[in-house]
Amino acid sequence: MLGLFLDSSTPIFGYLPIVLLLLVATAFPLIALAIGKVFRRSVFDRTKLSAYECGNDPVGDARERISIRYYLIAMLFLVFDVETIFLFPWAITYDQLGLFGLVEMFLFIGILVVGYYYAWRKGTLNWV
């Protein structure tokens, strides 16, 4: 399995530098934090370590209930993101698909636009 990664004729070979860069990019913050730990001082103070709330004592917990709008946005995002992902391979092979591809894509986007119109009329896209 590892041999597959190291064989330069496989397409996966080109991803090895990305893995190397992942290691470098992960090492950077870790080293920075470690060096910082050596130099900086740390004095314990309960007031200093409380959450910032304009100088007052924090009232209650921050993890309260949040607006339902965020859930709606997240769900709409899923639908549209999947659609976008489907458009990518279609766009790559578009020169081979020709008119057939265009009509197919009209249908695909058309179905989605109906849903989009429904969401719009239902007021999902309105924030207030």
Partner: peptide, 27 residues
């Protein structure tokens, strides 16, 4: 994770904003 009201609101706003504009970006 900060457990501060400002942070939570900022984080929520940011995630909603990022996913919304990501659609337009990829399209």
């Amino acid at each position: 994770s900060s457990n501060s009201k400002y942070s939570l609101m900022g984080g929520l706003r940011s995630s909603a904003q990022l996913i919304s504009y990501e659609l337009a970006l990829s399209l």
